[in-house]
């Protein structure tokens, strides 16, 4: 087990009334690419900061590679790589100097672990004399990844690595993660983008400091209850209201250019079509669609709201 988390809680604020994490338990296997998926403010960064020994949990315990985050923090610090969400390298040092600095403080050299970062580093090597502050967003991200990897960590923590990065760079980045995984590295990554979830081996959906579900992306999709319909009409706003009033629809929300309606106990799409027709909608299109991770997230969130979170 690379990471195991046992009932961790963490609160902030003067009266400890902001609950960032509520009794979270989780385990990540060695060599796994594990995704922590959740919206902003769900508690992802707090969990990262606990696992990388930057803050202590209020309650509960956690180990990384068998080392306790409370007692063996020094050991953990030598074997994990951490890439925080915000770019935090020395902007006034060059690409090469940054890399060399982080190599040195981890008692190693660029040459020693060059193999590991080669594929990523060759892309920024032409700019190695340039100051990190003058790099583009995608380049900065690659440099940050190199710096987090330079000491060949056993576990790599990536906190929202693709936030604020363009689509092409995001794809490239995930390809790099797959490469690293092949080398046997455990990768713990968080992201607010649900579409990236399918690229992970397993994912945990986190919301308001609680884990709603942990599974492989496929299983999670299979667990989706009821059917999902994609609906389009000429008056999208009115359609949203009407659909929410339809008895068989448990939840309806806007998803891109259409509405997604979670429906249970309904046999024929015609029923939905007729209902909208009666409400004077025009150009109605109803189609059955496959749920995405985001739809699963929405469904789990509703279930969560129905049973209120226990007040601590």
């Amino acid at each position: 087990m690379a990471i195991s988390i046992d009932r961790i809680s963490k609160s902030y604020g003067e009266h400890k009334d902001v609950h960032a994490l509520r009794e979270i338990s989780l385990s990540v296997h060695t060599g796994e690419l594990f995704g922590l998926i959740g919206p902003d403010g769900a508690g992802k960064t707090t969990l990262f900061r606990i696992l990388t020994t930057l803050v202590l949990p209020d309650r509960g315990s956690a180990t990384v590679e068998g080392k306790d985050v409370r007692d063996d923090f020094r050991d953990i610090r030598t074997m994990v790589g951490y890439m925080p969400g915000r770019f935090s390298l020395y902007q006034d040092l060059s690409v090469e100097e940054n890399l060399r600095f982080f190599a040195t403080i981890f008692h190693t050299t660029i040459e020693e672990n060059y193999e590991l970062i080669k594929d990523i580093y060759v892309q920024i090597e032409p700019f190695k004399k340039r100051r990190a502050g003058d790099l583009s967003g995608g380049m900065k991200q690659k440099l940050a990844l190199c710096c987090a990897l330079i000491h060949r960590p056993k576990v790599l923590f990536l906190d929202e690595p693709t936030t604020g990065v363009d689509v092409v760079s995001r794809k490239e980045f995930w390809a790099m993660l797959q490469q690293l995984k092949k080398q046997g590295m455990t990768i713990f990554v968080s992201t607010p983008y649900m579409d990236e979830a399918t690229l992970c081996d397993r994912i945990a959906l986190i919301q308001k400091g609680s884990i709603m579900s942990v599974d492989t992306p496929e299983n999670l999709l299979n667990k989706y209850q009821g059917d999902l319909w994609g609906i389009r009409t000429e008056h999208m706003y009115k359609a949203l209201q009407d659909l929410n009033n339809f008895p068989s629809v448990t939840e309806c929300y806007t998803f891109g250019a259409m509405h997604h309606a979670q429906v249970s106990g309904l046999q024929m799409p015609a029923e939905l079509h007729n209902y909208l027709d009666r409400k004077y909608h025009k150009n109605i299109r109803v189609e059955k669609i496959k749920p995405t991770i985001e739809d699963c997230f929405m469904q789990l969130m509703q279930a969560d709201e129905r049973e209120p979170v226990p007040n601590e």
């Binding site: 990388t52 925080p84 403080i105």
Partner: peptide, 10 residues
């Protein structure tokens, strides 16, 4: 934010 990077190091 570099202090965080340094804190997560030996």
């Amino acid at each position: 934010g570099t202090i965080e990077q340094l804190n997560v190091s030996p």
